[in-house]
């Protein structure tokens, strides 16, 4: 079995998730995968683009090529203030003090969380207790104390096209935590936005019939992603047995749960 990876490290979208404060545990999943690949002697080829020719001799080909961030289609989308979520997560130092995050799905929330964090490590118990107002000595009834909201180093506004509640599709038992965390950090949300253009003044939007400018230094695009599927039809024409899973199969909602489930079930049938 050979695993081809175009980039220099394994992980795909997990490499973004693991950099979000409060999502450090994703590092463990990647460590597990790396250790088990080695244990089972899987031939891992990093920095290697799998071509149709290179794949010719395999009996079964699993297309797990994932997604690319969807680009904005509006005037000024190539303005220097515009960053993809991938760039913003990998190089947060490029992001200015005033930020607009386009898209309030899971990635928009993650990016806002990252950009609104200051210096203190997210996983330190004392700091965490201060933020959420927890007194482990239970000095008052219930062990509650006045929360001390952390200060965000940036002012952030998260926008979405839909008029529904931001983060509506976040996890049923976790969404409220993400919403509360961003609220504590002063992240604002604007719903029902129509994006008009981007220029030196910032992001121009139309909302409730009124055009307005969101004055920001950086615009981070978290407006979904598109499946990478270029290998599928050439391989099918070449007569290979092709299985398409994960983001390459369905990019609408980035979904690690479905990706891992599909991969595991497929492996059980190979």
């Amino acid at each position: 079995m050979v695993l081809f990876e175009r980039r220099s490290e394994l992980g795909g979208q997990f490499n973004y998730a693991r950099k979000i404060p409060g999502k450090e545990e994703f590092n463990e999943t990647l460590r597990y995968f790396r250790v088990m690949l080695e244990k089972h002697a899987v031939d891992v080829r990093l920095n290697t683009e799998a071509t149709v020719d290179a794949l010719a001799n395999f009996e079964e080909i699993v297309i797990a090529t994932g997604v690319v961030p969807r680009e904005l289609a509006l005037p000024g989308a190539d303005h220097p203030s515009v960053l993809s979520y991938a760039d913003a997560i990998e190089q947060p130092e490029q992001v200015g003090k005033r930020v607009a995050v386009i898209g309030a799905g899971g990635i928009g929330f993650d990016v806002s969380e990252l950009l609104s964090h200051g210096g203190r490590p997210a996983m330190e118990v004392a700091a965490w207790c201060d933020e959420w107002g927890v007194d482990l000595a239970v000095g008052e009834r219930g062990g509650l104390k006045a929360p001390q909201p952390p200060r965000s180093p940036r002012s952030i506004v998260m926008l979405q096209r839909k008029s529904s509640k931001p983060g509506k599709n976040l996890g049923k038992t976790t969404g409220w935590v993400h919403r509360a965390s961003l609220k504590q950090r002063g992240v604002e949300t604007l719903t029902g936005c129509e994006y008009v253009r981007i220029d030196d003044a910032g992001l121009h939007i139309r909302r409730e019939g009124q055009e307005q400018v969101v004055e920001v230094d950086t615009i981070v695009v978290c407006a979904g992603q598109e499946s990478v599927r270029d290998l599928i039809s050439p391989l099918a024409q070449a007569g290979s047995r092709v299985h398409v899973i994960g983001g390459a199969d369905e990019a609408a909602e980035l979904d690690a749960k479905r990706a891992i489930d599909q991969g595991t079930r497929l492996a059980a049938s190979l």
Binding site: F4, L37, L55, I61, G66, I260
Partner: peptide, 23 residues
Amino acid sequence: PKRVAVVGGGPAGLATAVAAGQS
């Protein structure tokens, strides 16, 4: 075991390779 190629080392590809290796 067959000759299997997994293209892409994200969660889907990693899960496939590890689960197949395990089985």
